Amino acid sequence: MTVLPKDIPGDSLKVTVGTANGKPGDTVTVPVTFADVAKMKNVGTCNFYLGYDASLLEVVSVDAGPIVKNAAVNFSSSASNGTISFLFLDNTITDELITADGVFANIKFKLKSVTAKTTTPVTFKDGGAFGDGTMSKIASVTKTNGSVTIDP
């Protein structure tokens, strides 16, 4: 049996954390987006972790974005102690894959008090994996961190 590389060099799934701005007490939304989904033969499963400074940001909610089908079954998240974990699994293993680019999740943060303008990162942590529509590992994932700026 011969195994051929399935990824064209330079191609990767792009996962990007967005940015937001606000004043202390505001609730802002930071999107997590996927790009080049079709090039990577869709997404059938993924789990990953984001870190944030809990002294500056309070997670209000984490909701599935419009590219997630049947989110009540296929999407899960949790947030505590400065870490947000995400889990997606197409429970049907074929019919509810992520097949389009767009917003995977929206994180709502309540901004805490600061004395001066502060930009705090929302960054990928170690761990996690992504699988394509056949549940094979997506070897190349380009992750881009985001941030939230609090301006009193």
Score class of each variant (00 low, 15 high):
V15A: 12
D26Q: 11
V73M: 06
T144N: 05
D151V: 15
S147G: 06
A105H: 00
S80P: 05
P66W: 15
A79N: 15
L87D: 01
K14N: 09
K69M: 07
T142N: 07
D63I: 13
N74I: 01
G102V: 12
V141H: 02
V114K: 14
A116H: 06
T99D: 04
D126H: 15
P121V: 05
N81Y: 15
S55R: 09
D95P: 02
K137R: 04
T99C: 05
P5L: 07
K137Q: 01
L56T: 08
D151E: 15
V141N: 05
G25Y: 12
I93A: 01
T144M: 04
K108R: 06
T118P: 08
V103L: 03
D63S: 14
V28L: 09
T123E: 03
L57E: 10
A20F: 12
V73P: 11
K137T: 02
G44H: 02
T142R: 08
T29D: 14
P24G: 09
V141T: 07
I150G: 15
G82L: 15
I138Y: 01
L111W: 09
V32P: 01
V32Y: 06
N70K: 09
A139D: 05
K143T: 02
M40D: 08
G146I: 04
P5T: 08
S85I: 01
L89C: 03
L50I: 08
F104C: 02
T45M: 04
S147E: 08
S113M: 05
V43N: 00
S85C: 01
K108W: 02
K112R: 05
N70D: 08
F130T: 01
N81H: 15
V68C: 10
K6F: 13
V114D: 07
I138M: 09
N70C: 14
K143F: 01
N42G: 07
I98M: 08
D90R: 02
P9L: 11
S61Y: 13
K125S: 02
V30N: 09
V103C: 06
I107C: 01
I107S: 01
N106V: 06
M40A: 08
A116D: 06
K39W: 14
K69G: 08
L87T: 00
F130H: 00
T142P: 05
A71Q: 09
S85Q: 00
P24N: 13
L87N: 01
T118Y: 08
T115P: 06
S61G: 14
F86E: 02
K108Y: 05
G18F: 12
V3K: 08
A71P: 13
P121Q: 07
S147C: 05
G146F: 06
T27R: 09
E58M: 14
A79R: 15
V15F: 01
S80Q: 14
S113D: 07
T19G: 14
G128R: 03
D95Q: 03
S85Y: 05
P121C: 04
D26M: 09
G102R: 03
V59C: 08
A20N: 13
T92V: 03
S61M: 14
T16Q: 10
G131K: 02
S140W: 02
C46P: 01
V3Q: 14
G102N: 01
V32T: 08
V73A: 05
S140A: 07
T92I: 00
D7G: 11
G146C: 05
I84S: 03
K117C: 05
D132V: 03
E58V: 13
N145Y: 07
F104R: 00
D132C: 04
S76Y: 09
S80C: 05
V43K: 02
T27Q: 10
T115C: 03
N47Q: 01
F88I: 04
T118N: 06
S147A: 06
E58F: 09
F34Q: 07
G127S: 03
G131V: 02
V37T: 10
K39I: 09
P24W: 14
S12R: 12
F109N: 02
F34Y: 09
K14H: 14
C46W: 05
L50H: 10
K108N: 03
T29V: 11
K110I: 04
I150F: 15
A116F: 05
K125L: 05
N81W: 15
G65W: 09
T83V: 15
D132M: 00
T83K: 15
L97Q: 04
M40Y: 09
V148N: 06
D53K: 10
D63Q: 10
P66N: 09
V3Y: 07
A35H: 13
K125W: 07
P31F: 10
S12A: 11
G102F: 04
A129N: 00
T29C: 09
L97H: 14
L87K: 02
K6T: 10
S147I: 07
V68F: 08
A79D: 15
F86P: 01
A72H: 14
D36H: 11
F75K: 02
A79G: 09
S85P: 03
V60R: 10
G128H: 03
I67Q: 12
K23L: 10
A105G: 07
T134G: 02
N74G: 02
E58T: 09
A20P: 12
F109I: 02
D132A: 05
V103N: 00
D53N: 09
Y49M: 01
K110T: 03
G128D: 02
A38Y: 11
P5S: 07
V17A: 11
T134S: 07
D90P: 02
G44M: 14
G65N: 07
I67F: 10
S85F: 04
T118M: 07
T142H: 08
V103M: 03
P121H: 08
K6R: 08
P152L: 14
S61W: 13
I107Q: 00
T45G: 02
G82S: 15
S113N: 05
G51I: 12
I93D: 00
T16K: 14
D151S: 15
S136Y: 15
T149I: 14
L57K: 10
E58S: 10
T99E: 11
G146E: 01
S77N: 15
D151K: 14
T120C: 03
G25L: 10
S113Q: 05
D95C: 02
V17E: 08
A20I: 11
Y49P: 00
I138Q: 03
E58Y: 08
D132G: 03
A129Y: 00
K125D: 02
S77C: 15
L50T: 11
L13S: 07
E96D: 06
A116C: 06
I150Y: 14
